[in-house]
């Protein structure tokens, strides 16, 4: 555990809690892509199956349980409790275009051809692109609520901090995991355009809106 890893995890946690609080306080999930939230729930579920097979640490177990719990709570909010506010007409990204190639790739490029390992690999690849329905939705409506941009910022920052964590671990522990690193790079790159808008607009007090 190093400072990048810890701040990465906390940034991830912050993103998840910001989203839940936003929906709860405003009683609305307008502007949130339910499809991205489904993909994140699939990511956590397929990656953290090792909760049932191995114990790593209290920290590890609690974070996994919190992430999974929050992911399903978010889904409950979007598709049940606040369903009337869900903007499904704008949430039109075709997730099969992500699930099929990601599923195929996880069978082809993995560390070990075993069910748990393939599911872990699948979750790593899927996470790297799971935000695309949300970004697509924003590009379609041309705007995002400021609180939604804070959510996206922390979600993007988390994997960027993990990249520094992996650099740290390579130098000080000789550890590296090529699958996680490449997927983490892809994931971070997808946020770059958003980071630019966040810094140049949202942090200067302006709403995030895209030119028509």
């Amino acid at each position: 555990m190093n400072v990048f890893r810890l701040t990465g995890d906390l940034s991830h946690l912050a993103a998840i809690i910001i989203l839940l609080l936003k929906i709860w306080k405003t009683r609305s999930c307008a502007g949130i892509s339910g499809k991205s939230q489904i993909l994140f729930a699939v990511v956590f579920t397929s990656r953290y199956l090792d909760l049932l097979t191995s114990f790593i640490s209290l920290y590890n177990t609690s974070m996994k349980v919190i992430y999974i719990g929050c992911a399903y709570a978010t889904l409950y909010f979007v598709y049940m409790k606040f369903k009337a506010t869900y903007d499904g007409n704008h949430d039109t990204f075709r997730v099969e275009f992500l699930l099929v190639p990601v599923g195929g790739l996880s069978f082809l490029v993995n560390h070990d051809f075993s069910p748990l390992e393939i599911l872990w690999t699948f979750s790593i690849y899927l996470e790297s692109v799971a935000i695309l329905p949300q970004l697509f939705m924003i590009s379609k409506t041309g705007e995002a609520e400021t609180i939604t941009t804070h959510y996206l910022f922390f979600l993007g920052l988390y994997r960027a901090l993990y990249l520094f964590n992996w650099i740290w671990r390579f130098y000080f522990e000789g550890f590296f995991d090529m699958i996680a690193i490449v997927a983490g790079l892809v994931q971070t790159i997808l946020y770059c355009d958003f980071f630019y808008l966040y810094i140049t607009k949202v942090l200067k007090g302006k709403k995030l809106s895209l030119p028509a």
Partner: peptide, 10 residues
């Protein structure tokens, strides 16, 4: 050995 594989990260 896969049992040694690092799955500590989230």
């Amino acid at each position: 050995d896969l049992d040694e594989m690092d799955k500590d990260e989230l």
